[in-house]
Simulated assay, not measured.
Amino acid sequence: MKHPLADRFDGAATILAEIDARVPDDRQHAADTRKVVDTYHPKRLHLAVTEIIDETATSKTFRLANPDGTSLPPFLAGQYVNVFIDDTSRPFALSSSPARLDHYDLTVRRVPNGRISNLLIDTVRVGEILTTTGPMGTFHHNPLFHGDEVLFLAGGSGVTPAMSMIREIADRRSGRRFHLIYGSRSDDDIVFRDELDSLSTEHPGIRVDHVIGWPTKGWSGPTGMLTAETITALAGSLNSRMTYVCGPQALYPYALSQLTVLGQPRRRIRFEANGAPANPVAQPHWPSGVDPNEQITVTAGATSFRTPRKRPLLDALEDNGIRPEVGCRSGECSLCRVRIIKGDVHHAEEAKLRLSDEKSGYTHSCVAYPLTDVEIDL
Results as ranks from 00 to 15, higher is better:
residue 331 G to P: 00
residue 117 S to W: 00
residue 178 F to N: 01
residue 375 E to D: 13
residue 276 A to V: 00
residue 43 K to S: 07
residue 107 T to Q: 04
residue 113 N to P: 02
residue 120 L to S: 08
residue 317 L to K: 09
residue 225 M to Y: 13
residue 27 R to K: 15
residue 103 H to L: 11
residue 219 W to C: 11
residue 156 G to K: 07
residue 84 F to T: 02
residue 282 A to D: 15
residue 198 S to R: 14
residue 11 G to A: 05
residue 17 A to L: 07
residue 56 T to S: 06
residue 80 Y to C: 07
residue 184 S to G: 08
residue 331 G to T: 05
residue 221 G to C: 13
residue 294 E to C: 04
residue 171 D to C: 08
residue 120 L to K: 11
residue 354 R to P: 00
residue 50 T to D: 10
residue 322 I to H: 05
residue 130 L to W: 06
residue 67 P to L: 08
residue 237 S to W: 11
residue 290 V to L: 12
residue 41 H to D: 06
residue 265 P to C: 04
residue 47 L to Y: 05
residue 92 F to N: 04
residue 359 K to F: 05
residue 354 R to W: 12
residue 156 G to H: 05
residue 200 S to P: 11
residue 102 D to H: 10
residue 60 K to V: 00
residue 82 N to K: 03
residue 265 P to W: 10
residue 205 G to E: 10
residue 306 R to Y: 03
residue 21 A to T: 11
residue 39 T to K: 13
residue 333 C to V: 04
residue 180 L to Q: 02
residue 311 R to V: 10
residue 351 A to I: 05
residue 279 N to F: 01
residue 114 G to I: 01
residue 184 S to D: 15
residue 345 V to I: 14
residue 102 D to Q: 14
residue 3 H to T: 09
residue 370 P to D: 06
residue 51 E to T: 12
residue 78 G to I: 02
residue 337 R to G: 05
residue 73 P to E: 03
residue 260 T to L: 09
residue 151 L to V: 14
residue 19 I to M: 11
residue 111 V to S: 11
residue 10 D to I: 00
residue 231 I to E: 00
residue 63 R to D: 04
residue 316 A to D: 06
residue 291 D to C: 10
residue 69 G to S: 03
residue 94 L to V: 09
residue 46 H to R: 12
residue 249 Q to V: 02
residue 225 M to G: 01
residue 299 T to F: 10
residue 135 P to H: 08
residue 261 V to G: 03
residue 326 V to M: 10
residue 317 L to W: 03
residue 232 T to Y: 11
residue 288 S to N: 08
residue 294 E to G: 04
residue 22 R to G: 15
residue 231 I to L: 02
residue 227 T to Q: 00
residue 365 S to R: 02
residue 376 I to F: 00
residue 144 L to Y: 09
residue 14 T to S: 14
residue 132 T to P: 08
residue 355 L to P: 06
residue 98 P to M: 08
residue 33 T to R: 13
residue 212 I to N: 08
residue 238 L to E: 03
residue 285 H to V: 15
residue 2 K to D: 14
residue 304 S to W: 08
residue 37 V to M: 11
residue 28 Q to D: 15
residue 218 G to L: 12
residue 263 G to Q: 06
residue 273 A to M: 02
residue 377 D to A: 07
residue 272 E to F: 06
residue 157 S to D: 01
residue 122 D to W: 08
residue 87 D to W: 01
residue 62 F to R: 10
residue 282 A to H: 09
residue 227 T to S: 15
residue 17 A to Q: 14
residue 140 H to A: 13
residue 267 R to M: 10
residue 324 P to M: 04
residue 112 P to A: 13
residue 34 R to Y: 07
residue 65 A to W: 01
residue 16 L to K: 03
residue 186 S to W: 00
residue 297 T to R: 14
residue 80 Y to L: 02
residue 369 Y to C: 00
residue 101 L to Y: 04
residue 154 A to Q: 07
residue 125 R to H: 09
residue 76 L to D: 05
residue 24 P to G: 09
residue 301 G to Y: 06
residue 8 R to N: 07
residue 79 Q to E: 06
residue 27 R to N: 13
residue 226 L to G: 04
residue 7 D to S: 14
residue 238 L to Q: 00
residue 193 R to Q: 15
